[in-house]
């Protein structure tokens, strides 16, 4: 029986719980019996004997869970084999760092969708996991449903990955492709994106390239380029004029926010992308191109965000831990 604890019960945590309920049969066929033994959000929790469906219902209706036991206590004391750490990303790491450390120290596997801790202490956390003989998985931190981390770590394991170039922020990609199509100024498209729920009320984190830069740091460390957030040269999309797309088009280009890592540099910046190039994708999609020595260029594209997409990435890590070597 695999015992699962979930910390962070917002969109992602709830999405994962729903997926576990909905796909129970398929999942158990692949990894064996499992059980959710504890769930915690920032101010409440539930553990012991409970029905995950009831917990979801209570959270939706009342905004909280049954007990007052804190997330920290759950992580330290609850009975589980794998911790799903789905709390909100904070630059600098946030509470997630401690949750992950505590779980690893107890010899529990951790699957996280939270970029903060992985960016803040990639090496430290990985070493801690190794020391305790458990796994720390983080597919959901980058590119939503798109397989990026396991692609690099597993399937391209013996390739030399010379560079990764990608689009890792759907909000920016949406804004840029709309500016291109409608010849509208940035401010107007941003407003549209906010109304559609593709951009936050304070869009800084996305449009200034911060989100993409954090994901880039995670990818860099995954492919063996030791990097911290401060190492990324970051330029956002706020200064791009509508005319930029017209003059770029004369030379067969469009403009996309591209995150790029190689041994020489890490940068997130708007770039000219040839219209025929696979990175010239539209809308909220994400994409990544791996340049390798032996496998040539490998390209993946998919939805970079969303409740179910992110949950599916967590589930793929779960599968990897319990059935990946089969």
């Amino acid at each position: 029986m695999i015992k699962i604890a979930i910390v962070g019960f917002g969109t992602v945590g709830q999405g994962f719980a729903e997926l576990l309920i909905r796909k129970r049969k398929e999942i158990e066929k692949a990894v064996g019996k499992f059980k959710i033994t504890a769930i915690a959000d920032s101010k409440s929790s539930i553990s012991g004997e409970f029905s995950p469906s009831d917990a979801l219902k209570m959270k939706r209706e009342t905004g909280r869970l049954r007990d007052d036991v804190s997330a920290t206590e759950i992580v330290r004391n609850a009975e589980y084999d794998v911790l799903i750490e789905a709390s909100v990303t904070k630059i600098g790491g946030g509470d997630g760092v401690e949750y992950i450390r505590q779980a690893l120290k107890r010899g529990k596997h951790v699957i996280t969708s939270n970029k903060g801790p992985i960016v803040a202490d990639f090496d430290g956390l990985m070493k801690l996991a190794e020391k305790n003989g458990v796994k720390l998985m983080y597919e959901a931190t980058v590119g939503g449903a798109m397989p990026v981390i396991k692609l690099a770590r597993k399937y391209l394991a013996l390739c030399e990955i010379e560079s990764v170039k990608g689009i890792f922020n759907g909000t920016c990609n949406y804004i840029l492709s709309r500016m291109e199509e409608e010849k509208l100024p940035y401010e107007q498209v941003l407003k549209e994106a906010q109304e559609l729920g593709y951009a936050e009320a304070d869009p800084t984190y996305d449009v200034e390239g911060i989100d993409a830069a954090m994901k880039l740091v995670i990818i860099a460390n995954t492919i063996g380029v030791r990097a911290r957030y401060e190492d990324v040269e970051v330029t956002g999309i706020t200064q791009i004029t509508p005319e930029a797309f017209q003059v770029a088009a004369e030379k067969g280009y469009t403009i996309r926010l591209i995150a790029e890592v190689s041994k020489e540099k890490l940068r997130v910046s708007p770039r000219l992308v040839p219209k025929y190039h696979p990175l010239s994708i539209r809308g909220t999609m994400n994409a990544a191109m791996f340049k390798t020595d032996t496998a040539g260029n490998i390209f993946v594209v998919g939805r970079g965000a969303g409740k179910e997409e992110t949950a599916s990435a967590i589930l793929s890590d779960f599968y990897e831990i319990y059935a990946g070597s089969r």
Partner: peptide, 12 residues
Amino acid sequence: IMIIEPVNEELI
């Protein structure tokens, strides 16, 4: 001045 450079054009 903001400078927007091309992604390298070597391809698949």
